[in-house]
Design a protein around this nucleic acid. Structure first.
Lengths: 168, 168
DNA sequence: GAAAGATTGTTGTTGACGACAACAATTGTC
DNA sequence: GACAATTGTTGTCGTCAACAACAATCTTTC
């Protein structure tokens, strides 16, 4: 460990700013990224990385990633939706949903049924094994949520969901 | 703003759908994702996407992305850090930091100085124009933070930062 | 002091993901 | 029926995380 970078390891930073102000005024002579404290985007990004890694790890045995889980969940709750409807609802592009559904259909979890009313679109449904699989995924996802609670606290998680309810 | 919907409680849903199918089967806007409500990861992901897009848009004129800003900020606050120290501090891989620094160095914002003590490593510093540029970036970043406040509320943002303080 | 092991920066690959553009088939509009 | 819009699909481009391998350079160990 070189002398110039010696302080990069310690992470004391007990300095909690209870005040709401961003206060980017600090000289930050102490440690690392004091200048980044107060940036919501940075904290949210780090948290999102952590939460996704825990999700991927918790659902690792069944090999389901967060986006796949969201697609399955929406289809399970709304059978018969078109790809366009699912994509718009989840905020993903329909071009990307094509590959996601290709993978899920290859695993026999989802099936595309050509719509009779609109022959351009496909009605999306879960297969029978897809339904039972989703039930298992939901149990694992609930376990993941408990990990989140253990990480940031039960009521903090609840408050977080309340704050971000407008983005779901 | 495709997903700026309110709660899933009662949504009259203007039901515009000018060019939608005749069948009442695929009404995109009325899709409920009840099962996704209550998943912290989903809300955080959507929020993170929004916040990054606003950051990129607000700092669009200076062409600085969130990761670049975090690198500049850390180097500005801790001149002389090695690439390994910066990467570890920001939670990015050193392989990725190489390209980030290539870009920033090409723009004359950062310079790599071969360390005399450890000839493997580089001491990272801001250039003179890099310092003045960072000052401008910080003003724009503060404007972005005000956008976040306008989006979720001032005290909600403060509470969020408090909840996620452990991830910075 | 030399060999063995670890670290730093670099290059490369892989895969997930968002953003766009173009296209055929189909539908709605005029 | 001509024209515009939508749906699913294919493709490209760029960002980003995760690895793997490598040369140069410490650090450790004998």
């Amino acid at each position: 460990m070189t002398a110039s970078a010696a302080r990069a390891d310690a992470r004391p930073s007990p300095r909690k700013r209870a005040g709401n102000g961003p206060a980017p005024r600090d000289i930050a002579d102490d440690v690392g990224l004091d200048a980044l404290v107060g940036h919501a985007g940075y904290a949210v990004r780090r948290f999102q990385i952590w939460i996704f890694q825990d999700f991927i790890r918790t659902l690792g045995d069944v090999d389901i990633r967060p986006t796949q889980y969201s697609v399955l969940t929406v289809i399970g709750a709304n059978p018969g939706l078109s790809q366009m409807a699912v994509a718009k609802r989840l905020g993903i592009e329909r071009a990307r949903l094509v590959h996601l559904l290709d993978s899920l259909e290859q695993r026999k979890l989802v099936k595309r049924i050509k719509s009779k009313a609109d022959r351009r679109s496909h009605a999306l449904h879960l297969t029978a094994p897809g339904e039972t699989a989703l039930a298992k995924f939901k149990r694992l996802a609930a376990e993941h949520e408990r990990n989140v609670e253990a990480k940031i606290g039960k009521e903090n998680r609840a408050h977080l969901l309340r704050i971000l309810a407008g983005f779901t």
